[in-house]
């Protein structure tokens, strides 16, 4: 496993504690198909990881296993500490208003204030009292993200949480996630299809292919990052190659 190059926000205490999640030879089969094939992965405390991979490569499957939702995965898997998930689909509970979705199962003394703050952060204050079915795709996704962020977990699993957002909102939410990450320091596993997004946010970028981590790169650039940073440009080419895409074909 590659050693992580700490970003400027890393606190010294973090290096001392063990990983928040360890995946050791995890295998998941659906009938004849092997989606995860003896996969190894270690997620350090406070580490921001981006997970890339083609559609159907098993990213969501891995996240489900890490979230403790998959009882049929074989192999070693240990997660220490609390986990929060933003699923690929928003999965809001339709019969609970948005704010009640945010506070669902939230065991803090002041859930209401927390929810309000989280909703303000994702720009949904006005929709706090709305029924989930009346939200737009992007609004629902932001509500789902707020529900995960408000929990301040040790491990935050985000499954393509920005896919339904427009470019401008996306930039705002990127900043928000980075900011929350720098304050509470959860470990983040972010699934994305966007190489630039991965390079912009993560300490480490993984590519999932054929059931394994086929490629991994540390992202050494300090934050805030600009996508034209020379280190990132070469990494982008490498990652796109790992994904089987030639750089000319994109952007």
């Amino acid at each position: 496993m590659a050693t992580r190059v700490p970003g400027p926000l890393t606190r010294p205490s973090e290096a001392a504690t063990g990983p928040v999640a360890t995946v050791d030879g995890l295998t998941r089969r659906f009938g004849e198909r092997t989606v995860l094939d003896r996969l190894d992965l270690e997620i350090g405390r406070g580490e921001f990881i981006a997970l890339l991979g083609r559609s159907g490569s098993g990213k969501s499957t891995l996240l489900r296993a890490l979230a403790g939702l998959d009882s049929e995965a074989e192999g070693g898997l240990s997660v220490t500490g609390s986990v929060a998930v933003a699923f690929q689909e928003p999965r809001l509970v339709p019969w609970k208003r948005v704010h009640a979705n945010i506070t669902l199962g939230l065991a803090v003394p002041d859930p209401k204030e927390k929810a309000d703050a989280a909703l303000a952060e994702v720009g949904l204050t006005e929709r706090a009292g709305a029924w989930p079915l009346t939200l737009s795709g992007g609004e629902a996704q932001r509500a789902s993200l707020a529900r995960a962020l408000v929990r301040e977990p040790d491990l935050l699993l985000l499954d393509e949480p920005f896919s339904a957002l427009d470019a401008l909102t996306r930039i705002t939410i990127h900043q928000l996630v980075l900011q929350l990450w720098s304050v509470h320091r959860p470990a983040v596993l972010l699934v994305t299809h966007d190489v630039d997004e991965a390079l912009l946010l993560a300490d480490r970028v993984l590519v999932l292919d054929r059931g394994r981590i086929a490629h991994e790169s540390d992202v050494p650039a300090p934050r805030p990052r600009h996508r034209d940073h020379p280190d990132l440009t070469s990494l982008r080419t490498t990652l796109l190659a790992a994904l089987g895409v030639s750089p000319e074909g994109t952007t």
């Binding site: 998930v85 509970v93 199962g105 929990r151």
Partner: peptide, 16 residues
């Protein structure tokens, strides 16, 4: 079932 998964990840017990 997906909502039941949500309930699990936010730590709801069986009764809840």
């Amino acid at each position: 079932g997906k909502l039941a998964e949500v309930a699990r990840t936010v730590g709801l017990g069986r009764t809840q």
